[in-house]
Nucleic acid binder design. Sequence first.
DNA 1: AAAGGTAAGTTGCAACGAGAAACTATTGCT
DNA 2: AGCAATAGTTTCTCGTTGCAACTTACCTTT
Lengths: 166, 166
Amino acid sequence: MGGAIRESLRQLANDCSLPAALEAMGERWSFLILRGSFNGLHHFEEFQSELGIARNILANRLARLVDKGILVREPCADDRRKIEYRLTDKGYALLPAMIALRQWGERWETGTPAYPVLVDARDSRPIRPVQVLSHDGRALGKGDLLWALPEDVVRDEELAEVKAAE
Amino acid sequence: MGGAIRESLRQLANDCSLPAALEAMGERWSFLILRGSFNGLHHFEEFQSELGIARNILANRLARLVDKGILVREPCADDRRKIEYRLTDKGYALLPAMIALRQWGERWETGTPAYPVLVDARDSRPIRPVQVLSHDGRALGKGDLLWALPEDVVRDEELAEVKAAE
DNA sequence: AAAGGTAAGTTGCAACGAGAAACTATTGCT
DNA sequence: AGCAATAGTTTCTCGTTGCAACTTACCTTT
């Protein structure tokens, strides 16, 4: 069984989705372009002047992000020179990862929160640090996590069955 | 004031800590090496054979991660040929970002959760999707976030004062 | 309609980083 | 002493990045 776990961890190295995520977002500039999108940039020249990225690389990255379904590329109706790049749901779903990275940078690299800062629109209070949480909301730290094979994972359905049997 | 916000967003592009985080972790392989560390890899040859990374690049990345304080490099006491690379607290703090990326990959790229999967050690139930949460734990989505300048952020202290005055 | 400007790229070229394979330097085993 | 294991380094090739200039399509002004 120890051997099985070892082997599973080896599989993990290849099966897990981190490489897939990195293939989409792992190149230089990809995350900064994404941040630009989150911050309301929509056009080629906006990204170019805000990020100071080379034009050919920007063109390449935008095309790639569109290809991956993270951005959509749409010619503007009112001015047909302009192209609008907008986040898809898939792109928007990268927000937690982006915030987590940014928060890590704030805590461990720059030391200070950079303003403007992200707040809850409802009450203008700062958002929580992004954390890994258990199913019932406890924060999980260093020793609280385990790798489990399908048969060892406890699922909602099983608990529901147990409850029904009671 | 609209101009001030515009200007602030421009500042954001340069001040925010995302570039700092990416300088530490943005290079190819860095995240995969980190994942290896989380999964219990400790030695050069382990990383090399698990990841299939070129040896020179691996040496370079490990040195860089050590330099950034994400890993520590320590010669083994029992076998002095061996060097042990271990996560620091700073390195461990990247877990939420890594999980968020992996979960994104699972949801939007590979489609299926790859086993073994991370579970809560206490009850073997799967962890929650990593989310952006408000101070009181509500999940914040697309329209629920705002950029705020220091003077517009509502802090705990202020609320405490209000409470004391009641 | 002509001229000039703006938006979104593309092309050419120099420099840098990634990758494969072979080599080196310690240390441990027998 | 001789051989294998560990953690690199070196060399060379090739792909990527980055800058600057060029192009194409479209809009605005006169």
